[in-house]
Design a protein around this nucleic acid. Structure first.
Lengths: 206, 206, 206, 206
DNA sequence: AATGAATGAGTCTTCATTCAT
DNA sequence: CATGAATGAAGACTCATTCAT
């Protein structure tokens, strides 16, 4: 018994269950995952799940928060002390790609079907989203201050578009996962975002 | 008359049910909508639903296809005989916005979570998506030929980004529906797409 | 239309339906046959079935009677004017075998699952059975009178056993249909019935 | 005690359900018995039935096997170490009769109509039947070796007929249950089987 | 007479949750 | 704390029967 428990901390069981839940919710729909299944994978009794989580919905929410965390962190750590908007965006973008490659699964959960009935979760997502938008919009403003971004740009739209860009990459790789985006091509996306696709004087000059 | 009506009647019942289904599926999860509920809304017997649709899954698929149709048409009608890529994109973009305003609901279904278990549906969506990507990529190529778009752009990425742009608008308006995008601001998005956000010489010249 | 109807009599529809029903009930359980199925095979509308038969149960009963008829006839025609019990039994036995070979299907219905709820049918079967038993018992009595059958035999048991013999052949061939009984071997059965299996003086004498 | 009881308890619930199922299936058709009904009779929740049996079909099969067991045992225990075929057959026959009187109900299930759709069950029955036939055929062969049975008899047919004899008794008593066979008369059947009904020299000598 | 669209009662089965041990 | 046997509400689906045309 001691051996079996080696390395396991207090609060261990809760985590076992949470991990099992995440694994299952990544694999299948909320509705297609059964509590029994999770309990089995976590190697605990079905009743034990209810010792730590009040319901299947709660368990899903916690799983979702758990998976969302690293994703949100990625952005947040870049919203402070910017020396260059362009560079920061590139960093976010590249790390984003790396994160996806590493955690393809974890992210999947974020975009899987989730029960609309979990109103609390929906609100949470909206709030986080507002935070993100606020963050990237701030980034754009900073870029304008720094003279990197043209001052007539609609800062909020620009921010939202940057998010959309990032999420597009997720869409391609995680949801549809039928494409293996190379870093090069992904950077092209950012280039388009920065320079536009239009053939202006700038390019004519070449 | 009898003959003409018989056909209509049949179509009517089927449509009644389909409309009811769409309405319900817009309101709730696939799994949270019951066939009984749909039958009641359609004001037909439960068994009648099964006269026209072989299963709940089929009913959902048909609902989805029904809602997807106008959306897909929007793009497809613009993929032929282009005189200007910029103008075409603007047209698509504006009509897209109009469509959203008119059919907020129908579109909602397209972007709602859908059960991954409906594998056939997933494939259908992927295929349609590939078509769309092909279409917009073609549009970009055309733009290059016409000298509107810079030739060094990654055409596929540019195409995908255009799609992402459009879908972003949906995301903002339909899914989150917490914002009432004005046409002006939406056009700003397209401007960013075309000219980029970067402060290049072009802007410095002003 | 005239061509399609050629050879069809009045009362035709009823027979079409009955034949279709028999065919279906031979193929599958009462409960696994649907009225729709029968109507389709009979090439009539579902409602038409109910014009001629008041219910599915009634339709089954009629099908059963129809199939039972030829079987019962076989015996009945031999219960009159007997010159030799042994010979009559052989005749019945051989014809029985022939009937089975010809109508394997029709007989199948008689032994297929039938809804116990059809009390009326159960009674009918019991009555017919009593008739048969009466008949064969009479045959045995006749045999005794004619000096062919030993007078100390329990006539009713002997009669019932003769029936069992016949039904065994059906059991082997129709229900289990995993054996192709040759006429020779079947006659051996009758021989056993007539002479017993015991090694009595009779045989010792050889 | 706890351990011993736990096992018993589990067995008990399963048996409760099985007994209830047998009772119901004896009473009515497979298709006319509902799982709810069985659960009620067993005094357990509907869901509990599915804890112990994966489906209604499975429950029926188990009920059938349960009922078939004692019947099959009866024969099997007599297929070893025979000193007299005649005596063994009599023993089987008499015990068969006793078994019927005791377990009229359980046996009923065996000879009730059963849904042909339960293919697995049909196979099982055929296999058991082959075993029985093999057994009784062996018995006949033994009888020939022992000089009790005439050597020119078709052993398989003789075996099958012996089975038919036994089943006839069931048929008369259990299925039709309109007759209360006395042991005497039943033995007469065996006598016919052994000595035949024919009036040979043997009898003329009396 | 003939039809077949419409119906809804009735079934099996699943699974989140509870609670006695 | 931990368990898992027991539960029953809920839902998809079938099909005999009816009835308007």
């Amino acid at each position: 018994m001691a051996v079996a428990n080696r390395g396991k901390e207090v609060g261990n069981k809760r985590e076992q269950i949470l991990h099992a839940a995440v694994e299952k919710f990544l694999e299948k729909d909320y509705y297609q995952v059964t509590v029994t299944e999770i309990a089995e994978l976590a190697e605990v009794g079905k009743g034990t799940v209810y010792e730590y989580f009040s319901s299947k919905e709660e368990l899903f929410k916690e799983s979702f928060y758990y998976c969302a965390d690293s994703y949100l962190q990625l952005f947040k750590t870049h919203f402070v002390e910017i020396s260059s908007a362009r560079q920061t965006m590139e960093e976010i973008f590249v790390k984003h790609l790396a994160l996806i490659k590493e955690n393809r699964n974890k992210l999947h959960l974020l975009f899987n079907e989730r029960p609309q009935s979990l109103q609390e979760l929906q609100s949470w997502i909206l709030e986080r989203r507002q935070e993100l938008i606020g963050g990237v919009t701030g980034l754009v403003k900073e870029g304008i201050k720094l003279g990197e971004i043209r001052p007539d740009v609609d800062v909020e739209m620009a921010g939202r578009l940057f998010l959309a860009l990032n999420q597009m990459v997720i869409g391609e790789m995680v949801i549809l996962d039928n494409i293996e985006l190379e870093e090069e091509r992904v950077k092209d996306l950012l280039d388009i975002y920065w320079n536009g696709i239009g053939y202006s004087r700038r390019w004519q000059g070449h």
